[in-house]
């Protein structure tokens, strides 16, 4: 049987068939990209979703003709950040999405590129940290948890995300504010809020700490008790006191932002600021926030830069206290 050429054509044909099938299913316009947004994480995660939502709004609101999202995952976003800063200096069409997690990752990974090497534009959205206990737990309030923590920090196990992440930082801040040595907390790291949630529901640990969204469904169903939230003031629709009300001065927001390249002129920065402001004030963006359950914490310009500086300083000091940064 010698039928080599014909078989090759067959396979090629099969792929052309696949191409036309998919092409028919979703006819997308192919225009030159105006903005390129780097999502410093893999497809599907929070930063990727933020980047793709921003892409949709910028295109649908005709702020930008066509927007491309590029995923550069790895090391808490620091790989994407480093690549962005080195390759796009002076490029007014490049944007990167990032967030509070990056602040910690830059410190723990000793990243040579920091947020000082890019031009922060605006904070877009954010999520507060929630502290929960299993419904059957004897702990009723934040006070009870702090009392237990002071009595024997080892006996209070906390389930949350990876060591050095937002959840760990918040637990450290709570211990410090309560006068307990932050290196003495019994923090049990899980690969993400979901896996930690299973451990809390299964009564494996004393308390859980993660973004409110991870726990929301369980709190509403009554299988978890929400004892505190890390916002500055009470949040509409979340039935819990703030950590601050309990007398511990801890406010943490796991925010997400958009930044531009380094080396831009003042006019270029103003133009980008205007585009992002227009997108953030659009109804389309507000709809997305609503369906995804994201808080609108839009903050731009100098106010954002000031907040960023404060966050970086506070994070560095607590990571040193926990012993993750020297």
């Amino acid at each position: 049987m010698r039928a080599k050429p014909r078989l090759t054509e067959d396979t090629l044909l099969k792929h052309f068939f696949l191409a036309s099938l998919i092409a028919g299913a979703m006819a997308l316009p192919a225009l030159a990209a105006d903005y390129t947004i780097i999502a410093p994480a893999g497809p599907g995660g929070g930063w990727d979703q933020t980047a793709r939502s921003l892409q949709t709004v910028l295109q649908d609101e005709k702020i930008s003709g066509s927007v491309q999202v590029v995923n550069v995952p790895g090391a808490g976003g620091t790989i994407g950040l480093a690549q962005f800063a080195s390759q796009n200096s002076g490029n007014p069409n490049a944007l990167i999405v990032g967030g509070y997690v990056m602040v910690g990752a830059i410190l723990t990974n000793q990243s040579p590129v920091t947020l000082n090497d890019v031009t922060p534009i605006a904070r877009l959205t954010g999520e507060y940290e929630a502290i929960v206990v299993p419904a059957a737990s004897p702990i009723q309030t934040m006070d009870d948890l702090v009392t237990a923590l002071k009595a024997d920090p080892g006996a209070v196990s906390w389930a949350g995300g990876s060591a050095g992440g937002t959840d760990h930082i918040t637990a450290g801040l709570i211990a410090k504010a309560a006068g307990v040595d932050p290196t003495k907390i019994n923090y049990v790291a899980y690969s993400g809020g979901g896996e930690a949630l299973a451990a809390i529901l299964g009564n494996q640990v004393t308390a859980g700490i993660s973004g409110y969204g991870e726990f929301e469904a369980q709190v509403k169903a009554g299988t978890l008790r929400l004892i505190a939230i890390s916002s500055a003031e009470r949040v509409d629709g979340i039935d819990a006191p703030t950590i601050k009300e309990g007398g511990l001065d801890v406010v943490v927001e796991n925010w997400r932002m958009v930044a531009a390249a380094p080396g831009l002129s003042a006019e270029q920065v103003t133009a980008i600021n205007a585009d992002i402001e227009k997108a953030a004030n659009s109804d389309a963006w507000k709809d997305i926030l609503k369906t995804k359950g994201w808080q609108n914490t839009y903050l731009a310009g100098d106010a954002f830069k000031e907040q960023l500086g404060k966050d970086i300083a506070a994070t560095e000091s607590i990571l040193k206290d926990i012993g993750l940064v020297k």
């Binding site: 790895g74 090391a75 480093a82 990974n109 990243s111 990876s162 049990v188």
Partner: peptide, 20 residues
């Protein structure tokens, strides 16, 4: 990669791509 429980990098030799 990064040790999940302590956040320290193991066998990464300072290469960021190996941290995950």
């Amino acid at each position: 990669g990064i040790d999940q429980q302590t956040g320290q990098a193991r066998l990464s030799f300072g290469i960021p791509d190996l941290l995950d």
